[in-house]
């Protein structure tokens, strides 16, 4: 996993609640056996006017010009601001893979669905929860300022606006530590192999039917 320390980037707005993982990456693209290449199909049904299928040349497809990410002012955005319950629905990790492959490294919303939240951090995406009224202000700022940027600092847990004002955010200590250091969970857990073996010994005596 890549380390995440800080990021200054253009912000794009996704102004609807309950954006589900089916919308983030539609099911037909889940047939891939790879982890990469999902970016061109991020939000496929909203982004294009035709029906997307795996293996298509996406560069020639008709774009839905009204869709926010197709507007020129948001090109190159790496920070997404969103509404309540972002990432609800399916556990598909293809959703964070698609967001990351497209370029998003930070998503800011009032709330996220649990499985999406966990999947995103495992791929080095920083998800930030802020109060709905602060998010409202960010949506307003983005709307009136073309090329609107934010500066996110994970170590300090701050988001700095162009005018220098800062917003601080909370993050679980363990998620912060892993993100700052780009740590691999399996590697970390493997340091506790003896604990796992001790647990299995004890548990298989207590509940032998679980070990058959």
């Amino acid at each position: 996993m890549e380390k995440f320390t800080n990021l200054k980037a253009i912000v794009a707005p996704m102004d609807r609640p309950n954006v589900d993982t089916d919308a983030i990456i539609p099911k037909q693209f889940l047939k891939s056996i790879k982890r990469s290449g999902f970016g061109p199909n991020l939000f496929d049904e909203w982004r294009y006017l035709d029906q997307g299928e795996p293996g298509m040349d996406n560069s020639g497809r008709p774009l839905n010009e009204e869709f926010v990410l197709n507007q020129s002012r948001y090109q190159g955005a790496k920070i997404l601001i969103a509404r309540e319950n972002f990432g609800c629905g399916s556990s598909r990790e293809h959703a964070p893979w698609a967001l990351l492959d497209y370029g998003f490294q930070v998503i800011i919303a009032p709330s996220f669905a649990d499985i999406f939240f966990s999947n995103s951090f495992k791929n080095g995406i920083l998800l930030i929860k802020l109060d709905a009224n602060i998010i409202d202000e960010l949506f307003n700022d983005v709307a009136v300022n073309e090329g609107y940027e934010l500066n996110v600092d994970l170590e300090k847990q701050t988001i700095t606006k162009a005018d220098g004002t800062t917003i601080s955010f909370e993050i679980d200590e363990f998620r912060k530590h892993r993100l700052l250091n780009g740590l691999d969970d399996i590697g970390l857990t493997m340091q506790h192999v003896d604990d796992i073996k001790t647990y299995e010994q004890r548990r298989s005596a207590e509940a032998p039917w679980l070990f058959k």
Binding site: R35, S91, R92, E93, P96, I115, S118, N119, K122, N123, D185, I186, T189, M190, I196
Partner: peptide
């Protein structure tokens, strides 16, 4: 998610 699937498989 798939990262956790792999984690459970391995540990």
């Amino acid at each position: 998610g798939t990262s956790e699937v792999e984690h459970v498989m391995a540990t």
